[in-house]
Nucleic acid binder design. Structure first.
Lengths: 121, 121
DNA sequence: AGTATGTTTCGTTATATGTCGAATTAACGG
DNA sequence: CCGTTAATTCGACATATAACGAAACATACT
């Protein structure tokens, strides 16, 4: 039950759901998610840690960057079912389709360049 | 997206999830759910209205009683998928199995008698 | 009409959550 | 080492949520 509630709580915020769906096709580093959502790095970091505690995403640190990706096969069955449900229900919504477009632009920018731009704001 | 978040928010509270699962096999009136959850009638009423707004449950008034039941076929696909997921993940948990037992006892009591007992507390 | 009963709404309170900016930590580059 | 940079943690604030009891509402019984 605890595990289930941690999943539904994680999925009960629009920004977190958008972040989760953004990881559909590839991993992303925090600054890329910051760019997509338009939130502060600290807020995004908090969101990602909530998704991670729910085991919906996994993380990997490489050099200075933290990469997040969707949960893989070692995650609980409840997590896989949740992800499948989210993808099924939301992939075709306006908001998520817009995010796909935005992401395409974000991915064109070199991550180092992206972080540098953000730190100047 | 709005619809989806209303579903996940509804499912992000343990009492609401327990109430939802209690409706698995039959409709229940508010006083029966009150008895199961051990919360005040006003709190249970609020919970049920949140489940109803998310379209996870439907309501029917008969005489003095308000009966709630699981959403039926006319509900959105996202709702059905959510209910299927919840049932699949939680039916076998300790808490829910205990609720099934408690419910069996509650159902033995005539609803009128149950309400009378509650109003004396 | 008047009273009892089942549920909901309202007002209040305590706790939880989302957000930011500042401070801190971790990793790299000179 | 020391400064730079990416991310996280901390502290603060505003808003949202879960809970209750009191009041209001709706229905039935006499």
């Amino acid at each position: 039950m605890r595990e289930f509630i941690s999943i539904t709580k994680a999925l009960s915020d629009e920004s977190r759901v958008r972040a989760l769906l953004a990881l559909r096709d590839r991993e992303l580093c925090v600054c890329q998610i910051v760019e997509l959502l338009g939130l502060s790095p600290s807020t995004v970091s908090k969101h990602m840690s909530i998704l991670k505690h729910a085991r919906l995403v996994e993380a990997r640190k490489e050099r200075r960057w933290m990469y997040y990706r969707l949960a893989e096969d070692d995650a609980p069955a409840a997590v896989h079912a949740a992800i499948a449900w989210v993808l099924d229900v939301l992939s075709t919504t306006r908001r998520i389709k817009q995010d796909v477009k935005t992401l395409k632009e974000v991915l064109k920018i070199d991550p180092e360049e992206l972080c540098r731009v953000q730190s100047r704001r």
